[in-house]
Structure formats: C-alpha cells, structure tokens
Nucleic acid binder design. Structure first.
Lengths: 142, 142
DNA sequence: ATTACGAATTAGAATAATTCCAAATTTCGG
DNA sequence: CCGAAATTTGGAATTATTCTAATTCGTAAT
C-alpha cells in the first residue's frame, strides 16, 4: 500500500512495486505526496498551489498530466461532483462522496457491509459495471 | 403530470398548474417540448439544435436560461456524468443513469423496491441528504 | 384593451477548467 | 554513459457555461 511514509525518501525509480509501467519523475512524486498528505479532495489547482511550495517551477499542465497518469494507473481516484472541477482522492477502497453544504468539505462515505449493487438497482441481465460514482450533498451529521 | 400531449397547444400563460412562479414564454415551452419529445438525455447544445428547427432565432444563451429555470423549478432534471456536458432528463422519479460504453446511450435505472439510502450507506446520525446522484458506466445488458 | 414594470431573450464577450502543442529536458534500460 | 522514448513546460487553444447590457415580452392592474 502506498503511504505518505513510503513517499518521503522516494527517489526516481523507487516507485512502489504495485505500480507498473509508470515512470517515476520528481513531479509525479510530488503530486502524489501532496494528495497523500492532506486527504481533503483537492482540485488540480489546489494540488498545483501546494506542489509549487516545494517545487516552484512545476507547471499546471504537469499537474494535469501527473494526475491523469496517477488516475489511469489506479493510484488516485478522480472525483466529480456536479459541475465543479474534478477533485482527487487517494482512498482507493469502495466509497462515495458527501459534500457538506455548510462547510463545503467532502466526506468519504462507505457502503454498509455486504451491500451489493445488484441488490439495489434494477439492472438488466448481462450488465457489466465498469465504473460507479455516487455523490451526495446535504448536511453531514456528527 | 406534464406530457407532450399537454404541451401541444400550450399558449403563453398556459403553464401547467403545478408550475408556480415560472413565466411561460415561447422559448421555455419549446425547450420543454424538446426534452419531453425525445427522452434521450440531450445536452444543452442538442436541445439548441433541435429547438432551432421550430424556432430559428432562439439563442444558445436562452437554452441555458430556460434549462436553468426548468431545473430549479423541478420540471427537468440535470444529469452530470463524469466531466461531460450536462444532460437533461424529464424523468422526475427516483432513478440513476447508466451510460453504455458501446453505444454511448444513457439508460435510466431504477432502484429495487423498498431500497432506502440509509440501508446502503454508513451515514452519521443527523445527516440530511438534499441531493443524490448515482451514475454508472459499462455494458448495459438486454 | 392598454399600460407599466419586472422578467426574459439575445448576441456577443468573458470566464473557467481542461487539453493541446511543440520544443527542451529527463528517465531508465542496455 | 547513451539514446530512444516519455515527460515537462509555457503558452495557445478549446469547450462548456456564464455574464452583460440592450431590447423585447408577459402579465397583472388599470
């Protein structure tokens, strides 16, 4: 599992073993470190501003490139809420997203144990789900 | 219930009674008629192209204005799939959307009878859901 | 019916997020 | 260490959507 701890002393070439076919660059390492550090579902621009602190020459285009690479390699998940800009999330376990209308904060929400999609939805025989996104908005309790 | 049939001879001022506080204009009537006619989840631009056939002077800005009015009055539902442009759906009953990767077509999918959100998700006490969107992608069976 | 006023329409400009481009740089296997 | 292939970069381009300000329209009250 990739964690902030593993990231700290990562050098080029040190990509965690589960990541195949993805070159390690300083920029990708930094983008991933930013996303693992504060797990607050930052936008590409948020990531850009944070990455710039430690790497002042990084460009926004690179942020987008890195994020795309991390997303297509299933290291990071892209989260789309309504028409807002995409956000990025290092939590790879099954979960959905709840945006609190008061604070704007996004919370990860997990499924109850044993819940299966086919128990919930009327899907025709032979349907294959490759992608599922559930997003909620409202007042988040607690 | 609003239907295409009701729409046909609608004159200004003839807005269906369940719609309060929304002025009836030729443009809104046409936009609504387009959405009710082919229930294929058109984008704003799709609606524009179709509305233009019967109303050649209508502008895209008006399409957006009308759609916004219809959406905020709960006459039409706005559907967001990934980063694509918004689509519009006249089906107001609880349902979610499945985009078939082969055809690109979007299918309405309903919940199994008796399924409640709180049975599915771990939501903290006091959570109030004001908006829920579930979207799926894959191969749609049948 | 006519009026008046707030609301809606329009074309075009503006914005925001994201993608594209082409040149310079970097990574990494051999 | 070398070289091919991938990546980074700044800036331009694109796309969906929103904004603006002038004109027109819908409707409630006369």
């Amino acid at each position: 599992m990739i964690s902030l701890a593993n990231m700290k002393n990562l050098k080029p070439g040190d990509f965690p073993p589960e990541i195949k076919g993805l070159r390690m660059t300083r920029q990708r390492r930094e983008v991933l470190a930013v996303i693992l550090r504060d797990r607050d579902h930052p936008t590409a621009n948020d990531v850009f501003l944070r990455a710039q602190k430690r790497m002042p020459t990084i460009s926004l285009a690179t942020i987008y490139n890195c994020l795309e690479a991390l997303v297509t390699h299933n290291i990071v998940r892209q989260v789309n809420l309504e028409r807002e800009s995409s956000r990025y999330c290092p939590n790879l376990s099954d979960h959905c997203h709840f945006q609190d209308e008061k604070s704007g904060k996004i919370h990860d929400v997990v499924f109850k144990k044993g819940v299966k999609l086919e128990d919930i939805l009327e899907l025709p025989k032979g349907t294959e789900v490759s992608h599922l996104e559930i997003s909620l908005k409202g007042i988040f309790g607690k």
